[in-house]
Write a protein that binds this DNA or RNA. Structure first.
Length: 455
RNA sequence: GGCCGGGUAGCCAAGUGGUAAGGCAAGGGCCUGCAAAGCCCCUACGCGCGGGUUCGAUUCCCGCCCCGGCCUCCA
């Protein structure tokens, strides 16, 4: 398995600390509101990596944190007259629920920042002892220039950073580059006791503390959105490595961002699409197809028509699964072997999901050809291989349970329609089909009789 | 200004030092009572622009242009 490593700017072999066992930490949500389409990509990319590695027989330990204390959560709580923890709790649930709908496997551990204040205080204390951090009036800052490798991940030179250019720096900092590890409590804000007085943690320190707690030093993969490379991940490295003297994470995985018709997705532009609404409208497979149709390191631009394309693609897949339903599974092993080889080659090469999609399309085309030629074992093998590989990417093709309750009714109507067709009463036959279509039931005539599905 | 991505057909998107996967859309055909689904055919003399290296470059090198991101606790 080869993966691009932001740290080295190269595609490198993924060599886990323990052979066959990958420890992965991914930056999760700040639970300040409902997730939007942009939040889905950094959840889906690690999900696909994890599913693929597991399919290849590796063990994966997946940790994704929840940032449940932060300025925006506090601001929202204040505006709504609620306790910040209530806001965080609500949106943690919303996030988990929507990730489940998207088909993202839940992480094995989902630590919350507020549950790890003690670990963070211990880390900060250590940094203060070592001289890497200093306290000023209840705040504690990390001394960036004390960490020689600062800037390595993001390719920045400390002397060229324009800290303070866009935002007035806190004048108590010894250096404008320094960042907060601990923030003294302000009235009305949540706070915890600490050696520096009541306060709350800075953002970056939670990931350092929680990754260390659950994955230890030098774990394998650390992931997140590209926008987190600087300063968040740079700061995580500085804090962690300054404290331990050891490498923090071996492989840094960053997904490119999403744009909407060429524009950044942001509240001020007003082009945010809520993940929940997109799921309602398109369903998990279509969204997943959309995200995986581009390589994870390429920017993904959404515009009208893009979702429709993904929907058409998934529709083609679903149509084959339906067409090959019920075929005996006496398989043609050569068919699976070839597809698996192409699929594996694509995925091993830095998670080449677009090429993996091509393998799926080719399986579907081959399957239809076999089906049309009456070669059922091969058609069944194409279906089974398709379902297996699509499953590795997280696609789910369940039975059409939606229609179960109306099945007998539809069957009766189709029987009436067949009678009409036998009489060449096409007006009645088409009327029945049209009415079913209006109700969401698609009818397709085949040599073996009519088939129907919801959709 | 610095750093990081990206610029391949109408749209999306792989890929390679030797002549461009796959999908969507469009067009033609087959099948069908008509559809739907499916199958077949068709679609980039060209891979942002200009140089260079080479027998040969879209793929390597140099310069430039355009788009996006980060440089502020944005996924």
């Amino acid at each position: 398995m080869r993966l691009y490593n932001t740290l080295t700017r190269r595609v490198e072999e993924l060599r886990p600390r323990e052979p066959g066992r990958v420890a992965m930490y991914v930056c999760g949500p700040t639970v300040q509101g409902a997730p939007h389409l942009g939040h889905a990509r950094p959840a889906l990319v690690p999900d696909v990596l994890r599913r693929y590695l597991q399919w290849r027989g590796w063990d994966v330990l997946h940790v994704r944190n929840v940032t449940d204390v932060d300025d925006k959560i506090i601001a929202r709580a204040e505006a709504e007259g609620r306790h910040p923890a209530a806001v965080a709790e609500e949106y943690t649930r919303v996030y988990d629920e929507q990730m489940a709908r998207l088909g993202v496997l839940p992480p094995h551990i989902a630590p919350r920042a507020t549950g790890h204040i003690i670990e963070m205080i211990a880390l900060i204390t250590r940094l203060v002892e070592l001289g890497s951090a200093y306290e000023v009036g209840g705040d504690v800052f990390f001394r960036v220039r004390s960490f020689p490798r600062y800037g390595r991940l993001s390719g920045r030179d400390v002397d060229e950073l324009r800290a303070g250019e866009r935002v007035e720096p806190d004048e108590r900092k010894a250096d404008p580059l320094d960042f907060a590890l601990w923030k003294a409590a302000k009235p009305g804000e949540p706070s915890w006791p600490s050696p520096w007085g009541p306060g709350r943690p800075g953002w970056h320190v939670e990931c350092s503390a929680m990754a260390a707690k659950y994955l230890g030093e030098g774990f394998d993969v650390h992931g997140g959105g590209q926008d987190l490379v600087f300063p968040h991940h740079e700061n995580e490295i500085a804090q962690s490595e300054a404290a331990t003297g050891r490498p923090f994470a071996r492989h840094w995985l960053h997904n490119a961002l999403l744009s909407m018709s060429g524009a950044k997705m942001s509240k001020s532009v007003g082009n945010i699409v809520a993940l929940g609404e997109a799921l309602d409208r398109w369903g998990p497979n279509v969204l997943r197809q959309l995200y995986l149709s581009a390589h994870y390191r390429s920017p993904l631009d959404l515009h009208p028509g893009r979702l429709a394309e993904a929907s058409a693609a998934v529709g083609r897949w679903e149509a084959y699964v339906r067409a090959a339903e019920g075929l005996d599974a006496r398989s043609d092993p050569s068919l699976r072997a070839g597809a698996v080889e192409a699929f594996t080659a694509a995925m091993d090469d830095d998670l080449g999901t677009p090429r993996a999609h091509a393998v799926l399309f080719e399986l579907v085309t081959a399957g239809h050809e076999h089906l049309q030629a009456g070669r059922e074992p091969q058609a069944a093998a194409a279906r089974d291989t398709f379902l297996e590989l699509a499953g590795v990417l997280g696609y789910a093709f369940g039975a059409a349970s939606d229609g179960a309750r109306v099945g007998p009714l539809v069957a009766e109507l189709l029987r009436l329609r067949e009678d009409a067709r036998a009489r060449r009463d096409f007006t009645t036959a088409d009327s029945i089909r049209d009415r079913l279509s209006e109700a969401g039931v698609v009818v397709e005539d085949t040599p073996a009789g009519p088939r129907w599905h919801v959709g």
